[in-house]
């Protein structure tokens, strides 16, 4: 009787192919879940984008040569109007509940060779957990003599930096 080894070869091929397929499937599924704990800064970057966009919307001139809403609220020192405009831009969503984004805004200005800051808007009503990562967005604002900011008067037009800290509360 002649012994044939064809069947053995087919078996070896089948086993090897099966192993390769399993390896393929494993790697494909690993490729989908590339979101590791080290990637949480992507969320932060999205939040930063949202905040910067909201400030950009407020910093749109209302017409040719006219001031922007942001300039007006800073010049007239109206944190209430700032809050009323800024927080819907941040929090409103097309569907579902509001996004619980918290913020706090301050204004930095130059005095001589130094920089000082004054709090512009710090809405209450959030519970600080102490572990929510915050991001920071800024926007330049030009103010002119006669402004109502609680900062030393320089008697000239000046550029101040509006800084907003954002976090999910």
């Amino acid at each position: 009787m002649v012994v044939q080894d064809d069947a053995t070869l087919y078996t070896i091929e089948g086993v090897a192919a099966a192993l390769l397929m399993i390896a393929t499937a494993t790697i494909v599924f690993q490729a989908i879940s590339i979101y590791t704990p080290g990637d949480t800064h992507i969320d932060d970057m999205l939040l930063e984008q949202l905040g910067a966009d909201a400030l950009a919307v407020m910093d749109m001139p209302r017409g040719q040569g006219e001031k922007t809403l942001l300039e007006e609220v800073v010049q007239e020192w109206r944190p209430d109007i700032f809050d009323a405009t800024f927080s819907p831009l941040l929090r409103e969503r097309s569907f579902g509940a509001e996004d619980p984004i918290q913020y706090s805004a301050e204004i930095s200005y130059r005095i001589g060779d130094g920089v000082e800051s004054v709090t512009f808007s710090d809405p209450p009503g959030y519970v600080a957990t102490g572990r929510d990562p915050a991001v920071r967005v800024t926007r330049w604002v030009q103010i002119h003599p006669g402004h109502s900011l609680p900062i030393p008067s320089t008697g000239r037009s000046q550029a101040v930096l509006l800084e907003v800290i954002l976090w999910r509360g």
């Binding site: 930095s108 200005y109 130059r110 060779d113 920089v115 800024t138 330049w140 030009q142 320089t154 000239r156 037009s157 000046q158 550029a159 101040v160 930096l161 800084e163």
Partner: peptide
């Protein structure tokens, strides 16, 4: 661009420079 034609341009430029350096 907006401050190019203002009279206080140099002061504003110094504002921009120092605030950028210290805050941004």
């Amino acid at each position: 661009i907006r401050s190019v034609h203002l009279e206080t341009t140099n002061d504003i430029r110094e504002d921009l420079r120092l605030l950028s350096l210290k805050r941004n």
